[in-house]
Nucleic acid binder design. Structure first.
Length: 473
DNA sequence: TTTTGAGTTGTTCGA
DNA sequence: GTCGAACAACTCAAA
């Protein structure tokens, strides 16, 4: 194997230059590096918002690579076909990438690795997407953790590898292969006018992600524990958006949070715990891949969920006009900003799966369409948890009451006022922005009457509890 | 092997 | 208004 043959660095959900073990290894190999991003229709998300946001991230990485004297080659198609052509075109003898752990990526990568190896091309995968590899955390009996708390106890004192520096320069190949033009991919096609609205709220690229982390550590982490549950407060890190695309590494977050904790920041440990929730979700997706598509726990397959995604009730839920203020504000936050506060996600999830007796997969699909921080593992776990069929399952009787939640977590109405225009003389900017983001076909206007409740909360709760009892007997 | 204690995020009801 | 108990039973992880 000639050292002068190029090495393909296959970027996927690791769109950064710092703390990138595959990149570090590629540089150390001494070979010319060919950075590639492949839009693989078979595996990639087709959600309108995450696809659009992915395009922004790819563009940012391409810019960053150019500053290092390199560039990002863009190709589209089944990953293995694309890699084969690039190998033929360039004489590359090695392909490096960062491992992914969701079922679709894992299956694809296994096949790619086998095929490349059989072609006598060195296919090497590296860590970096997680703090702890899924096979490196086990109970005393060697099983994977199915409950969060013991997993947290098992990992919280572990050493986490230090953050790797970004390279100063990338050795370029003598000849660059052809690249697609990102704009031609039309990654924002599904967003329509929504992109203009959400664009005001995104934070794209590695430098922006590092800034966001620094700001959070300086000004936010000390009040994280106390304020993170209040959706009107800017108390969360919002770094899920950047973690999703790998614009920043979980290890960078871990070390920043750990240092803050050692300096006495109240709430820093809670931030680390949230990072481990992400690990937990990925470990579950790795060991029980059916979590992304089927009820994780046995005994739920005969629960009488409605699977229709287009009933009037589900449509009202998606559009944020159920007449339940917390639910509607949250669903509009999703449309306007591309994210939704954690507490709000639980409330809309409980409302959909319990009050509306709708299958969690309907909600999961809508979140994939709308969330710029869409993550296959975290969302699968979250939806199954709130529906009751997942790990650490909420007892079935734990049905969130959106009115009670409003009193507890938005007592002054700041959150609902920010997103609900109806009935207000001077609606807030984000409440008005909703009408710019949604399709015209929904026929909604700021001066509509406030929507009527589509369901009585008490009756909905009782119906869900009765259905649970019946399905268990 | 058996036992023991615990399990992210809740609600309601009655004292 | 506040507070504790009830809401069920089961699974998980460690002792």
């Amino acid at each position: 194997m000639s050292d002068s043959s190029p090495l393909i660095l296959w970027f996927r959900r690791d769109l950064r230059l710092a703390d990138h073990p595959a990149l570090t290894a590629a540089v150390r190999s001494g070979r010319p590096i060919l950075p590639v991003f492949i839009y693989d229709d078979v595996v990639e998300t087709h959600g309108a918002a995450p696809k659009w946001r992915l395009g922004l991230s790819v563009a940012a990485l391409a810019n960053d690579l150019e500053r290092l004297g390199s560039k990002l080659i863009l190709r589209r198609g089944p990953a293995l076909d694309v890699l084969r052509s690039l190998i033929t075109e360039t004489g590359a003898r090695a392909v490096f990438w960062s491992r992914l752990y969701d079922p679709a990526s894992k299956d694809r990568d296994t096949k790619v690795k086998a095929a490349l190896t059989s072609m006598d091309v060195s296919a090497q995968s590296f860590d970096g997407h997680l703090l702890f590899e899924p096979w490196s955390v086990a109970t005393k009996t060697g099983d994977f953790y199915k409950v969060y708390s013991p997993m947290w106890k098992a990992v919280k004192d572990r050493d986490v590898a230090g953050v790797l520096p970004a390279p100063a320069k990338l050795p370029a190949p003598e000849n660059w292969p052809a690249s697609d033009v990102l704009a031609h991919w039309n990654m924002g096609a599904g967003m329509r006018r929504g992109a203009d609205v959400v664009a005001a709220h995104v934070c794209v690229g590695e430098a922006a992600a590092l800034d966001r982390l620094a700001t959070f550590i300086d000004t936010g982490i000390h009040r994280y524990k106390e304020q993170r549950d209040f959706p009107s407060l800017p108390a969360t890190s919002r770094l899920s958006e950047n973690l999703t695309y790998g614009e920043i590494s979980p290890r960078a977050l871990w070390h920043a949070g750990f240092a803050a904790m050692q300096q006495g920041a109240q709430g820093a440990e809670h931030f680390l715990k949230e990072l481990v929730w992400r690990e937990f979700a990925y470990h579950l997706a790795f060991h029980t891949p059916h979590i992304t598509t089927r009820n994780w726990r046995d005994g739920w397959d005969n629960f009488p969920w409605s699977t229709a995604a287009d009933t009037p009730e589900v449509l009202a839920w998606k559009q944020g006009r159920t007449g339940v203020a917390f639910v509607d504000a949250a669903m509009r936050e999703l449309y306007v900003t591309g994210i939704m506060h954690n507490r709000a996600r639980m409330i809309v999830g409980s409302f959909l799966t319990k009050h509306l007796m709708t299958h969690w997969r309907v909600g999961q699909a809508w979140f994939e369409a709308c969330l710029i921080d869409w993550d296959p593992a975290s969302n699968a776990m979250g939806w199954q948890w709130i529906a009751g069929c997942g790990p650490d399952a909420a007892p079935y009787f734990r049905v969130f009451n959106p009115d009670t939640q409003l009193e507890k977590f938005d007592a002054d109405g700041a959150y609902t006022r920010a997103y609900l225009a109806e009935g207000q003389l001077a609606p807030a900017p984000k409440a008005l922005a909703y009408y710019s983001a949604i399709p015209k076909s929904w026929g909604l206007r700021p001066n509509d009457l406030p929507p009527e409740r589509i369901i009585d909360l008490k009756a909905g709760r009782e119906r869900a509890l009765a259905a649970y009892s019946a399905s268990k007997s």
